[in-house]
Design a protein around this nucleic acid. Structure first.
Lengths: 226, 226
DNA sequence: CTAATAGTGTCTATAAGACAATATTCC
DNA sequence: GGAATATTGTCTTATAGACACTATTAG
């Protein structure tokens, strides 16, 4: 009765590499744009997916092997001309993963590209989707715990601050940063665990409180206003 | 090749009535849930809509007659059981309109219900969608110009402050509010235009600067933290 | 000891909130 | 003038940023 709409999901998988946000691209297995590097994505499968979120997690698992990644819905992109096959709709998700976890999973065909400065064209409207994801992540980073998902399970406060700075692209006052982290109340000390081996005072290791594995902690006032 | 996914849009049209956010509901013309009050929505029509946003604006126009309403994408809701017809996906939008504009359009069958306390069940997952919309709107209201779209074309600062307070559900400091509005730089005085006729000092009338008709102005620091 | 970086104390600057004084209208 | 509300001035309080001081490690 209605000409059908092509329903897909796309995932903007972000990680930190060389002190910059990078996006994971994979060669497309099928037409259109076969062989071109693009965001991991695929059809929503009504038979197996319980939601578009499930579809996005499935795509991530298939492409990277990762099964436990922080993921949030970004937005839905649609129109008659974004896909040469016809009127299409893509529910885009962004995902954050520490670089070593991504590399440990050994994904086939993965290329990492600077997310802020791609340097080459992407098929479909994937460049728009990446741009929207970076904007969203930067914005959320300024007032939430989102960047912790780019760190591994354990990290020191100076390491976490560096991650925030790399995501936001600007330096953060050390005292303010530590005050905010204390106020957000999302970290717990790992008693006795210190980062050792360097010629300076060792740093305390922290981990995320379990209740924030899937949720974010937010503050009313941004980290680096102005 | 793939069992098709039912693609729809739903609109959470919000307005202020009796000093509270209200959501516009309409009786469903078709099955399922024929006759039940629900969010205005409908199929995405690949033949005529250029995007899901267009579809949402079309639905709004068809149900209310309104053609110029502030609208933003909320999120996409999906799954096998939210619609009895099968695996479905709805791109939800929220829209803001001043009550008098809505009433002037004379929409047929409209019912307004408290958006924060619906009082009765909605079909599909529309209750979830309304809840998400109210959450988003309240959140954005605290650091952006979003509530101005609930005022008419001209308004005084005390009127606008009342709108913000009704959206947020809490009082705002008058001096802080006026400072924020000045800082956001989104209003312009209408020279010589004052709200007259009452036994007190008349208030200056303002209007939105044209560049903010479709965009929002935002501040780093929320209006009423804590 | 020195170099290096972690962690903290404290002063200053900025922005929000409280409160009150002044302005302007209708009656 | 009195009541009512708009608008503005200013003091207090809360939060962010700058800067420097102390702590702890390796060598």
């Amino acid at each position: 009765m209605h000409p059908s709409v092509i329903c897909t999901v796309d995932v903007v998988l972000l990680t930190l590499k060389d002190e910059q946000l990078h996006v994971a691209l994979f060669p497309r297995a099928n037409q259109p744009f076969g062989g071109a590097f693009a965001l991991p994505g695929g059809y929503v499968r009504a038979q197996e997916d319980q939601s578009t979120r499930d579809a996005a997690l499935r795509v991530l698992r298939e492409k990277t092997g990762l099964t436990s990644v922080f993921t949030e819905q970004l937005a839905t992109f649609s129109g008659p001309s974004r896909d040469p096959r016809g009127w299409s709709l893509s529910v885009a998700y962004y995902a954050l993963v520490p670089l070593d976890e991504l590399e440990a999973a050994g994904p086939k065909g993965l290329q990492l590209h600077s997310a802020t400065n791609l340097g080459f064209a992407l098929p479909f409207d994937h460049a728009d989707i990446v741009k929207a994801a970076v904007e969203r992540v930067r914005n959320k980073a300024s007032y939430s715990s989102l960047p912790v998902h780019l760190c591994g399970k354990q990290f020191t406060l100076p390491q976490l601050q560096a991650v925030y700075e790399q995501v936001l692209g600007e330096p953060i006052n050390k005292v303010s940063f530590r005050r905010k982290m204390a106020e957000m109340n999302l970290l717990e000390e790992i008693p006795g665990a210190m980062e050792e081996g360097r010629a300076n005072r060792p740093a305390q290791l922290y981990q995320l409180k379990p209740q924030f594995t899937d949720r974010l902690s937010v503050t009313d006032r941004a980290l680096n206003p102005g």
